[in-house]
């Protein structure tokens, strides 16, 4: 069971340097051939200052910085019972190679609900990302489901 005393808890900021190679790896795994995610000339021709991160790129720093796993442990959630329920992004600006992102994660809510398959905890996590200029670039909202 998720630890409800941690609703509202904010975690120490983490940083992540954006690399074009990781953007490329992700879109190649997805099979997304839009050149603005891989080719600087195509991106600038489309009005961007450089290659841009694809819509779901932010999952890369979230996973590789072990942010989510650390929170799951801290919240005493049983990883074997976890499902990814929802994911949502708000975009405030583009993310480019070379950017240094700072993410600040927060436990927005934890609720217990009873569904068809029994009780479950719904854990809402928010991560706000700013870039090296201190500008907000993205807000990620994740809903993690812990089945009982």
């Amino acid at each position: 069971m998720a630890d409800k005393s941690k609703i509202g808890k904010e975690y120490p900021p983490f940083t992540w340097e954006v690399e074009k190679g990781k953007i490329k790896e992700l879109v190649q795994a997805i099979g997304d051939k839009n050149p603005i995610f891989q080719d600087r000339e195509a991106a600038t021709a489309a009005g961007y200052k450089d290659i841009v991160a694809s819509p779901t790129y932010i999952t890369v720093p979230m996973n590789w910085s072990n942010q989510l796993m650390g929170m799951i442990k801290d919240l005493q959630i049983n990883f074997l019972k976890v499902l990814h329920g929802e994911e949502g992004y708000e975009y405030f600006g583009e993310i480019h190679p070379g950017d240094i992102l700072t993410g600040k994660a927060k436990v927005a809510d934890i609720q217990t609900k009873s569904g068809k398959t029994g009780e479950m905890d719904l854990i809402k996590i928010e991560i706000n990302y700013t870039n090296q200029e201190g500008k907000p670039v993205l807000k990620a909202n994740s809903l993690i489901v812990e089945r009982k």
């Binding site: 997304d32 839009n34 961007y48 819509p55 583009e94 909202n141």
Partner: peptide
Amino acid sequence: GQAVTNWIPKKNLKKLNVR
């Protein structure tokens, strides 16, 4: 995300939510 940004330029995308 690929389907959306094939249609709408990435810079115009403001929110994307999935269940």
